[in-house]
Design a protein around this nucleic acid. Structure first.
Lengths: 186, 186
DNA sequence: GGTAGACAGATCTGCGAGAAGTGTCCAGAG
DNA sequence: CTCTGGACACTTCTCGCAGATCTGTCTACC
């Protein structure tokens, strides 16, 4: 509860997840090696994360949140709805391209812990909906929900199965999302 | 070249793929067992399909075409654009639900031969675009392309990761596709 | 708090023998 | 002319088994 202890704990968690991510992409992710690399005893890890799955879950959670934070930042950086989505999708594609853990979670190829794809899609959809409601309150509520889910699913789809250059994908997804968000039309 | 020979060959291919699909979902797909179940020699199989991969490719190809034929039939059965897509997506979800081979191809979980997902998405997109161009020629060409790709990707996404009952998914995808197909709007 | 060590039990690894499958050949039957 | 059955070399599963490693927990210690 003391500042030092809390800081040390948070730092340990952060370091542990950094190393765990490294080990994971390397294919070997075990508690003994994780502890050794951190210069800490196995027990400390078990105390902090409960068990191996706890480390894995925390790792997935952090990767997801960082991913979505980056996307939301890109969204917020633009004022035009279409431009915002172009930037967001482009950011998502970029991150997915050079984050092995994220790519593994989304494509599900490596033996990842809890698939992860579902959590990411759900979280992305909810964040996108929140952003739209907040930034464009005049949009129809149902359309916002549909646009958010479509944005999340289309982006993941293009990460898993890219058929066009990133810029083109971003443009296409953005156009689709904007047209859906615009509502029934008449 | 004689009718009898051609018919026998076609029948053999069809039977072979039926049995191959059975063996595949059962997890054991080998040339000796396939030949035995067909009451034919292995050599005949190799003559007809070239090699094991040839059987696999033919199997995937047929599954894909049947899948898309079913969807296109559902599309053609409705006159309203929205209703047509509701029916098509519902048909796709239904088929994917009770066709193990198809589901394996799309989700990529079982060790399928050539992933298959890419071929399916591409073929679905192209067929959807063809249908839209043919049936709704007044639609903007670029919008049709975008709507077709979105329809294909969203449907696959909802098959791989279903988060809502099929009827709701069909309704959502149809709404999204129609709004995209409608064009820039103004 | 944290460490080091020990512990039973599960899980992974390497390995070799044996079985099975792959792809190709050919002689022979219908 | 097509299909069969058998043989062939080669590669790829499979299975058992021993040894190593990992997991999760406990205890003594600092």
């Amino acid at each position: 509860m003391r500042p030092m202890a809390r800081r040390a704990r948070a730092q340990l968690r952060a370091d542990a997840l950094d190393v765990a991510a490294e080990l994971f992409v390397g294919g070997r992710f075990g508690m003994p090696e994780l502890a050794a690399r951190l210069g800490v005893s196995r027990q400390t890890l078990y105390s902090e994360f409960g068990d191996r799955q706890g480390v894995a879950s925390a790792l997935v959670l952090r990767a997801t949140e960082r991913f979505l934070d980056g996307i939301e930042a890109a969204l917020a950086r633009e004022r035009d709805l279409h431009a915002a989505w172009v930037a967001a999708v482009a950011a998502a594609l970029r991150r997915a391209a050079d984050d092995s853990l994220l790519k593994a979670l989304l494509t599900g190829d490596q033996a990842v812990f809890g698939s992860g794809a579902e959590e990411i899609v759900v979280a992305a959809r909810d964040r996108a909906a929140g952003y739209l409601r907040r930034q464009w309150p005049e949009l129809d509520a149902e359309s916002v929900g549909l646009a958010a889910e479509t944005a999340a699913r289309l982006t993941v789809s293009h990460i898993v199965l890219p058929l066009a250059p990133p810029e083109r994908i971003a443009e296409q997804v953005a156009t689709a999302v904007v047209r859906i968000a615009r509502g029934p039309g008449l």
